[in-house]
Design a protein around this nucleic acid. Structure first.
Ligand SMILES: [Mn+2]
Ligand SMILES: [Mn+2]
Ligand SMILES: [Mn+2]
Ligand SMILES: [Mn+2]
Lengths: 220, 220
DNA sequence: TCTTATTTTTAGCCAAGACTAAAACCCTAA
DNA sequence: TTAGGGTTTTAGTCTTGGCTAAAAATAAGA
């Protein structure tokens, strides 16, 4: 059963909203994520249900099926591999890749993806620190913690961002936060949750709770 | 004015059928090339006419406009650059690239194409020997001659193929004809136009007129 | 439990891009 | 000059993926 581009995009959204298939997702949530109207989503859910990539019970939201999970992971794999290509080979900035990858992920050619993976030397993470599923859909999970959840005086390394929007990534570039940076939590302000963070043992960064919540680290 | 994928494909077909915009093209010819019905073509011609990439006079065929030529050449440029990428970087065979490039050529990102061109070191020809238009739509033309049009005893070098179908290219691989091969016309059979050709001063090839007509060379 | 607010679905519409069948047009040969 | 054949267009239908408005179902509060 072949999926259209629109179907692939919806399925990917459902996969993400369901936290990898662990919880069910409402029509309204899908509409918000896809920037469409709930009425359009109802229609699409019926189609995805017919194709058995989701389990759809009217009025009770959807759950992604095993087949659906597999399909979504393939699309995610393609998206992230293309992002690596754009950054590593074509020298795109990490805030320039998302929209293009959103199109490239729908190119139909298993050979292309296999060869691309090989060409990129089997990368495990994309430019935003997100893991790239292997060809079987297996994902290498890392325990990640948002900066605002880290304790004062604890240290770690930035490994990913939660928000991949150009605006956010450009901001991180400007202040000098990047994936791989070593960090230490110097202070957390009670009042508004804003934080003071030491980057690479030399630079001090002040950031709002909102920003901190979108930066993911592994503790060391 | 933005063109849809379908519109880009039609425009490219019209560009090719019109020999680069030098002659007008009939509805039936477009239908044959696009493998659609004439009725569908009429509809599309109206749309392309509205967008002023062709000049459309009902019942009298279409001519591509300057704007249309520019658009078509951009799509062709993208198609051929992707083909080079697939062959040079991902080690696709030259008969495996066409369908994938047919999809990749529609990705919308000027930056992507500019960077891809740079990454590939500004190639001038695609894997089938076809010239790659530069970013301004300028094409480096070479005087090319089909093998069946060459005289007995004349020599040259294979530079392109007219037919890029997998079947034809696989056949060429099998018999050992390739782009860059030095050739000499040993004999032409009056009866059926079949030919005997010396390849790289060592291997003799027999081919039908049909095959010869789809191999292009520059004479030396 | 009943009434309301919220969520979701249905119904009806639209545009793109395909199709078939039928009508209209163009050209040529008698 | 006109009839016929081939070409092209039009009319009507279908599918996909959107939309709005209205109806229906669920959930929550009194
Ligand atoms: Mn996408
Ligand atoms: Mn990413
Ligand atoms: Mn194409
Ligand atoms: Mn080619």
């Amino acid at each position: 059963m072949v999926l259209t581009t629109a179907e692939e995009n919806y399925l990917k959204a459902i996969y993400h909203l369901s936290d990898g298939g662990t919880k069910s997702v409402s029509t309204n949530d899908v509409a918000a994520e896809m920037k469409t109207k709930p009425a359009s989503v109802s229609d699409m859910l019926r189609k995805l249900g017919d194709k058995e990539v989701i389990e759809y019970r009217k009025y009770y939201g959807v759950n992604i099926t095993e087949e659906g999970k597999k399909r979504a992971l393939t699309t995610i794999r393609k998206h992230r591999l293309w992002e690596v290509f754009l950054v590593d080979k074509l020298h795109f900035a990490w805030d320039e890749v998302h929209e293009v990858a959103e199109e490239l992920e729908h190119i139909q050619s298993p050979l292309l993806i296999q060869r691309l993976d090989e060409f990129l030397n089997y990368p495990k993470f994309d430019p935003h620190g997100d893991p790239i599923p292997d060809e079987f859909g297996d994902v290498k999970a890392r325990p990640r913690l948002a900066l605002n959840e880290m304790e004062i005086d604890s240290s770690g390394q930035i490994v990913a961002v939660k928000d991949s929007s150009a605006a956010f990534l450009k901001y991180l570039d400007k202040v000098g936060a990047y994936i791989g940076a070593r960090i230490k939590i110097l202070d957390k302000v009670e009042f508004d949750g804003s934080m003071e963070i030491l980057v690479d043992q030399k630079k001090t960064l002040f950031m709002s709770k909102d920003v901190a919540a979108n930066i993911l680290a592994i503790q060391s």
